Computed example of a mutant assay.
Amino acid sequence: MASSERTFVQAIRRYCAAHDIEVDVRAGGWLIAMRRDDQRRFAFGYDIGLNSAIAHRLANDKSAAAEALSLQGVPCISHHLFLNPKLGEKVVGLGWREAMLELLHDHPQGVVVKPNEGTSGRSVFKVTTAAELDHATNEVFSMSTGLVISPYVAIEDEVRVILLDDVPRIVYSKQRGSDWRHNLDAGAKPVLLADGAVRTACVKLAVDAARAIGIRFASIDVVRVDGAWKVLEINSGVMMEALSKLHPELVQATYGAALDRVFGDASPSTNPSPSPPRNG
């Protein structure tokens, strides 16, 4: 097993070795073929292959996910979609920049501009002026067919809930560093949450969000703004690279439990989920 492989790939290799499943890793680890007898399954990127196509697409589209949550009355951060003008006037329409400026005017504290699809906080901009808006828009549109604009809010806490069939496998807070974002790639530190009111509230909201779009295995980010919890994003690809450095057994057990579902195993994974520490 190459030490440079992503945790996701290593976890699948370990699971397959323990369950007599053939595994073929291709494309630098981004495509994984698994076979046991007449069962053939695939993992792609960070998608383990458990979610339906529509749930996967909704989760990966920030604007669509926010709309779907709103339809079900699930509190969430709004994400206004704008398509890349390179797609043409018939697709994008007129007045898209004026609509952006109107959103900025309506939120004098600023807005956040980011790609409609994507993870890890890349190409995310906090914008307070028209000049900053134009810069952010150009940057995002240079690599994306769509962007979303959300009101900038002072996030008091951010928690990630990793769910498998409505059961919380891992719940942790993101302790922000010097950056204004809570992304782990931006230096935030994952800290497992102990049982209590905060954990209970975050899990309930995450379960409501998962049910709203029909997703089975996902990491759901919830944030506290002005004392109220809201869904920020739903991620169909469950990435646990940073968490694995601190809690490798918990990460392996979570991927193992999901793979049990993928292969239809009636018995639980050979790597049951260990109890999280009761501090932090």
Rank of each mutant, 00 (worst) to 15 (best):
D226V: 06
A43E: 09
S144V: 10
L184F: 04
P268C: 04
N116L: 02
C76P: 03
A209K: 14
Y15N: 11
F8C: 01
M143W: 06
V23R: 06
I149R: 02
L192M: 14
K174F: 03
G45F: 05
L192Q: 14
G187A: 10
A206T: 10
A257M: 05
A59T: 08
V251G: 13
L104N: 10
K90Q: 10
V225G: 15
V262G: 14
A55K: 12
V231Q: 11
G214W: 01
R216D: 14
D20Q: 15
L87C: 13
E156Y: 06
A253S: 15
L69A: 03
T129G: 06
G280A: 10
T119H: 13
A131H: 13
S123M: 13
H247M: 08
E98W: 04
H182V: 07
R261P: 03
D157Y: 08
I155G: 10
A257C: 04
L205M: 03
A33W: 04
V112E: 00
N138D: 12
G88S: 02
G227C: 01
C76D: 00
P168A: 15
A65D: 01
V92H: 00
A55D: 08
A65E: 00
N84R: 05
I48T: 08
R211E: 04
A18K: 15
W30F: 15
A33F: 03
R176K: 15
R97Q: 13
D134E: 15
V238H: 14
V140N: 03
R261W: 02
N235L: 02
S178M: 08
S4R: 01
S4Q: 04
F42H: 11
T119Y: 06
R36L: 09
S150I: 03
E89G: 07
I155C: 11
T129P: 08
L164W: 05
R169S: 15
L246Q: 14
E5S: 13
D61E: 06
L31E: 12
V223K: 05
D20W: 07
G214T: 08
A242G: 02
V92A: 01
V251D: 11
M239F: 07
S178W: 04
C202A: 14
R211A: 07
E67S: 12
L83I: 07
P272F: 04
K230W: 02
K62H: 11
G237A: 12
S120K: 13
R6E: 06
D134S: 13
R261Y: 03
A130E: 15
Q39C: 08
H182R: 02
E233H: 06
A2S: 09
H56V: 10
F125K: 07
V222S: 00
C76R: 01
D260T: 12
V222W: 04
Y152K: 15
V74T: 02
L232W: 01
G280R: 12
I21A: 10
R211W: 00
A154N: 13
D38W: 05
E67M: 08
M34G: 08
C202L: 01
D179A: 12
A2Y: 05
S70V: 07
V124L: 14
V127L: 08
A66P: 10
A212L: 09
P190M: 14
P151A: 10
D226T: 04
I213R: 01
K114S: 00
V198A: 04
D47N: 11
Y152D: 09
V23P: 04
L246W: 05
P272L: 03
L58K: 12
M239L: 07
L184G: 01
D208C: 02
V127I: 08
A209E: 03
G264W: 03
S78H: 09
A266R: 12
D106C: 14
